[in-house]
Amino acid sequence: MSKAGLIAARLLQIVPTFLLIGVVVFVLARLLPGDPVSAMLGDRASDEAVNRLRQQMGLDRTIFEQFAIFLENAVRGDFGTSIAFRVPVTSVIAERLPVTLALTGLATLIALGLAVPLAFVAGLNANRWPDFLIRSVFQVGLSSPVFYVGLILLTVFAAWFRWFPVGGYGEGVADILWHLLLPAVTLALSFAAVIMRNLRASVLEVLNAEFVDFARAKGLSRRVILTRHVLRNALISTVTLVGLHAGSLLGGAVITESVFAVPGMGRLMVDSIFARDYPMIQALTLILAVVVSLAFLVTDLVQMALDPRVAR
């Protein structure tokens, strides 16, 4: 298939994926204990109010009709009214989405900035002390829960040294960065560990590849071999890896935002659970899954651009 054909096919794939995400979220919502209407209105609502809401939500129709209504509303961006905020769910999420995206984006940059150079140092010194040192540090990072790292950084750099705010979100780029730096570093550490581990393995693999021998036989300098031949090949696999971890990064954001009181979607999710704000939980689950599938899509497209072998 041609490259354009592949890209088109990949873009079309997103449609069934969105549909299936909708099914899962819809089913999840139907599994809620008790009647969603009484959950939303409370026990003391009048029968008349309950019936009106049931009709409004389409709960008196068949399950398929309900699903069709759910989908239609979802496409229009209508997820109902938040129980906790008493405003449309969408308007609350619209405020929170950029915060979470900024946090995860910054964390990804920090993770790459840490992991890529160190993976090279480790790979080039395989099984010597710099390698052991880097791998040991990252092994600890990999085994450290995000909330624990976050609490330590928060206490040390925000509470004791007072270099950073203890939480919240800022106004304007510089202020936002200042507020997000600690949470982003927290989120980045375990992600960096994953990237480092994989990139080191692929650097080693590439270093042992025959095309590196051939490049040496051509008389190329070490610098050219490393930057043109090794880096390029090793980074292609890293792009895929970063994309595949979009989900765990957002999962980590849920915890990080809770620790640092960052007003993003993750913290909203946890708050909503304790507030039993079911429409909000439903919408957040759906939107986070959509964000991940979009991240997968972007990854695949970038991979197609970087790796000529993808077009078969």
Binding site: F211, D213, F214, A217, K218
Partner: peptide, 22 residues
């Protein structure tokens, strides 16, 4: 390094693995 490729060159058995795929 100045001699490699300049005065003495080498070719390998498997061009598929000796050439950089990307």
């Amino acid at each position: 390094r100045a001699l490699r490729g300049r005065e003495i060159a080498m070719i390998f058995q498997e061009p598929m693995s000796a050439l950089n795929p990307v």
